[in-house]
């Protein structure tokens, strides 16, 4: 092929390519738009979408959070704060628990760090406020009365901590404690 013929072919392909482009956009003109009309049309979000945070309860309806501070430590923007306390039965709990949603970036790290599945993110993302101070949520605002995504999990059944649930050694997958004062096997 001579150079001129090659050039002619490349011009031809260029023109057909442009023509195809125009045809494509023209065809789109008669298609139904795929936009979701948001406030009217709300899509069901996946259960693991990350938005407003809740504190869940175990299957018996007791608070799951043991105030271990792990979520607060892992939070990249330090928006979780709490004060731990202990009940007479040996269970730890948060005396107060506060999340400042004005700072939260909904990264989900707190949920990943939590050993008790207490703190969980929910798909409810519509939380805009005029007053930023109303975005500071206290424990009462955060607590819900269900187990969230991990409904069956009960931390104290596995924890190895003596509570009213039973002494040490009585938990699931736990062997009785070793008597350190004896050498007997």
């Amino acid at each position: 092929m001579t150079e001129i013929q090659q050039k002619n072919i490349s011009i031809l392909t260029a023109i057909t390519a442009i023509g195809q482009g125009f045809a494509t956009t023209f065809k789109h003109l008669f298609r139904k738009p795929i936009t979701e009309q948001y406030p009217e049309e709300k899509r069901e979000l996946p259960a693991r979408s990350r938005a407003r945070i809740v504190l869940t309860r175990d299957p018996d309806g007791r608070e799951r959070c043991v105030a271990c501070y792990l979520c607060s430590a892992v939070c990249p923007v330090s928006c979780i704060s709490m004060q731990s306390a202990e009940k007479p039965d040996g269970r730890r709990y948060a005396a107060w628990f506060r999340i400042n949603f004005g700072r939260c970036i909904y990264c989900g790290l707190c949920e990943e760090a939590c050993p008790t599945s207490a703190i969980q993110l929910t798909p409810d993302f519509e939380n805009c406020r005029r007053d930023i101070l109303t975005l500071v949520y206290e424990k009462e605002d955060l607590q819900v009365d269900h187990g969230g995504k991990d409904a069956a999990y009960n931390f104290y059944e596995y924890a190895g901590v003596a509570t009213d649930e039973g002494p040490k050694g009585s938990h699931e997958k736990e062997s009785p404690p070793v008597n350190v004062r004896s050498n007997m096997p």
Partner: peptide
Amino acid sequence: KLLARLQIRYGPN
């Protein structure tokens, strides 16, 4: 509006 329809959107509505 037209640009939106060319891109299968609604445009200002």
